[in-house]
Design a protein around this nucleic acid. Sequence first.
DNA 1: CCATAACGAAACGATACGTTTCATTCAAGT
DNA 2: ACTTGAATGAAACGTATCGTTTCGTTATGG
Lengths: 206, 206
Amino acid sequence: MTSTLTADRRTSIGAQRNPASQEAILKAAADILRETGLSGFSIEAVARRAHAGKPTIYRWWSSRAALLLDVYHDQKQVEPVPDTGSIENDLFAFVTALFDYWRDSEAGSIFRFVIAEAQSDATTSAALRTYMAERIDQTAELVRRATRRGEITADVDPELTIELLAGFAWSRLLTGRLDVDPEQLHKLIGQMIRGMRSGGDPGAEQ
Amino acid sequence: MTSTLTADRRTSIGAQRNPASQEAILKAAADILRETGLSGFSIEAVARRAHAGKPTIYRWWSSRAALLLDVYHDQKQVEPVPDTGSIENDLFAFVTALFDYWRDSEAGSIFRFVIAEAQSDATTSAALRTYMAERIDQTAELVRRATRRGEITADVDPELTIELLAGFAWSRLLTGRLDVDPEQLHKLIGQMIRGMRSGGDPGAEQ
DNA sequence: CCATAACGAAACGATACGTTTCATTCAAGT
DNA sequence: ACTTGAATGAAACGTATCGTTTCGTTATGG
């Protein structure tokens, strides 16, 4: 007698994790984030929506932050580092792609939530720091290539240069201003690369 | 018979706001933020610590975010825009002062919480955007002065230039990496101003 | 003098927390 | 083939905070 079960109830598949439950939980979590934001993102709500038991979630994710990070990693897809032959265009392509990615997918919202959560959760903070360091090191290759080409001087710090632009992107994401004018941005990067001094006289003071 | 009152209970002073309660609430809120961070910052906890009634808080602050913003504004003190005569040194002084301020006072922690709260609360988000626009416009004067001096070309966008550096500072604050090497930072700003191209050939295109 | 509003305390129903209990399902080890 | 044990969803647990309401009290302002 399978008396007390509703027909479509997801159940155990033995002494192992049920991938269907895992998927349902991650999907429900992503949907809730998209529809109600971080404020509606509770374990209780995710369990309800996924038709999963709360113990199932707590068994596989230690906290709300852990689940959030998993959702984020699911969304994430590593974009290749641009290589146009010019550092100016590479940097422009990098920032533009980042803004487009954040604007056109759910990744932007989720990343905002991860940053927010990191301000009060140590685990998320550590994970965010690690992730950021990886991405910066990866993207800095763009600058290192330019150094090898002799396009820029050897004393330029690749990581710090990327961090400067990435930080700008962060602040735009976090204040909901992803509508950057491409021309303005291109000009800024050009000036950052070519320098801002007027004329070819880098010694005029006072 | 003042029977049910404990001796030091703060009470009404008539049909007007009690400044003592207001101060006690703001002080308690700031103390809680300093001691337990944003996670311990609840209206309930603030009321307990301030020996205030929850309705008193809700009467004067519409939400947790509103109270948080008030605490933040209390902490805030406007720093003068540096004016050393050189944009490079001005920018370095600006960023250094910002990092020192965030590191040495409670302002850094509170600002982090405001940014985090802004990711799920529309009121805080709007307030943050307004505040940031004000500060950027104010600091951009530093760049405008340099333009007037002829130190940099006229097509440099003052606000965007400040935003670039401020965004970098934000990302460092939000990832708990306020320990910037001054020399490294000074070099970065110098390169940003002077340009990164090797040689004195500012016209090589395509 | 009295209507009105602010005060702190207490309790409200609602919601989410993290945990436990339960009957059930099935993989893995004897 | 049989038993052991872990995973599953549902339900209920006690705890905590939410935002609100009720209450007795205080004292301003009309």
